[in-house]
């Protein structure tokens, strides 16, 4: 039988849930020997929409994009450090655009066979407007998707990793 999982990609968006997902993905990569990618997408599509809606000023658009790129770098570096502490190399993927499309593109470009994402909101609205980008990626991804829950248990699992 070929390896169960060869390439794992964890989606990072700056939330605590996504950091928990990263810890889980590191444990999983350590256990399976799979390559681990961490993907952060700067949501420039949303920023452009806010400019069109006149919620943002032009200089705000640039400022927020710059801030978000810095966020992306910081969180990817953090996940990289989490991986290094456990001897798991992490390949960082930073892109910008429409989040769910960029996630799908990264999955396809890197031949990822498992997408790991953090827990989605507990309460989901019936309104179509309320779906989030990770959820859209989850529905669109061609590969299997793992949703990570129970931050305390994941933290213990990560901490106990040799």
């Amino acid at each position: 039988m070929s390896s169960l999982i060869r390439k794992i990609m964890v989606y990072i968006d700056g939330t605590e849930q996504s950091v928990t997902a990263a810890q889980y993905a590191i444990c999983l990569a350590a256990a399976t020997g799979a390559d681990l990618f961490a993907c952060y997408v700067v949501n420039t599509r949303a920023v452009e929409d806010l400019l069109k809606a006149r919620i943002f000023l032009a200089d705000e658009q640039l400022e927020y994009e710059h801030d978000m790129e810095a966020d992306a770098e910081r969180y990817l570096n953090y996940v990289n450090e989490l991986g290094l502490k456990k001897g798991v190399p992490v390949t960082k993927i930073q892109s910008k655009g429409s989040v769910h499309k960029e996630i799908i593109d990264a999955i396809n470009a890197n031949d990822v066979d498992l997408l790991v994402i953090g827990e989605v909101s507990h309460i989901r609205s019936r309104r179509d407007e309320f779906y989030d980008e990770a959820e859209r990626a989850m529905r669109s991804a061609a590969c299997s998707v793992l949703i990570v829950k129970d931050a305390d248990r994941v933290w213990e699992m990560y901490e106990s990793l040799g």
Partner: peptide, 19 residues
Amino acid sequence: SPDRSGPHVEALAEIAKLA
């Protein structure tokens, strides 16, 4: 917070959709 721009943008975008 200045170092949490992503969630801010997403929440604003959601409000824009609601509007």
